[in-house]
Design a protein around this nucleic acid. Structure first.
Lengths: 140, 140
DNA sequence: TATTGTTATACTCTATAACTATA
DNA sequence: TATAGTTATAGAGTATAACAATA
């Protein structure tokens, strides 16, 4: 096996490790969401609503269709976690956290941060090493 | 904001970057699978079949139920990519790639490796830096 | 005419539970 | 009795297409 193939094999192994890390993170997130009585998609949505946002923007950030955001918003509204606030452009509706929603979102965000692998398994030095590598991986 | 909160915020940001990298990788994999006419779950399964394996083992490696492996195997068999070979223990069936299946798997694996972000965006030095960090994140 | 959100519908992925055939 | 695979069914998550209101 040549040098090129070695590097390919190493890259493949590292990619798999990256996937494993994120799978673990997602499973942690699912546990946290469940502990607050939320399906994962609702928990994901609520985490984006730090500030009120048009449904179209939520769709962009969740990388999903507008129609799906409608159904998420319906569920969140039924649970009393958000309200639909009309925008200045009257086609637009701003999803806005209620008091209960804000409280829940803060609790979820705090739990996610504290339990994150990056926080628990890496020290400050290691996190500083990781950052530029991830930036490199994400450059377009 | 205290030092602890800074570190929490930094960890959260790094976690998000990790997720973004993997989302990108998954989207690349989906594109590759589609270019070979395969739904993602079938492509994932075929990638595990380097060597014939009992369906139970495939379920373990895909982290799914045995019944789902049955349906994946049905699809792969219909497409002529695998056959079910009886094991010595006659309850067991070994999923075994056909010639066409082997060829397809090799092409997919090669495409995934070459297009991986880790391979394309990081040099050998950076990959050596990344590895121990990922190991640290994955230690139990 | 283009865009926002909604509705109705349908699809993909995956699990659960009951079953069979071996062991 | 326990295990491997199968069958039938159901659920979660998400998309597509046609539509109403507004720009």
């Amino acid at each position: 096996m040549g040098k090129h193939d070695d590097q390919l094999a190493q890259a493949t192994q590292l990619s798999q490790m990256l996937i494993d890390v994120v799978e673990r993170a997602k499973s942690d997130f699912a546990e946290i969401a469940a502990s607050f009585g939320l399906p994962v998609p609702l928990a994901r949505a609520i985490c984006l609503l730090d500030t009120p946002a048009p449904m179209r923007d939520i769709a962009a950030r969740l990388v999903c269709e507008r129609s799906y955001v409608t159904s998420l918003a319906d569920e969140l509204e039924q649970r009393g976690l958000i309200t639909r606030v009309p925008g200045e452009d009257r086609r637009v509706k701003l999803l806005t956290l209620t008091t209960a929603g804000t409280e829940l979102r803060d609790q979820i965000a705090a739990a996610v941060a504290v339990r994150s692998l990056v926080f628990r398994r890496l020290d400050a030095t290691q996190r500083r090493q990781l950052e530029p590598l991830l930036e490199q991986l994400l450059t377009d």
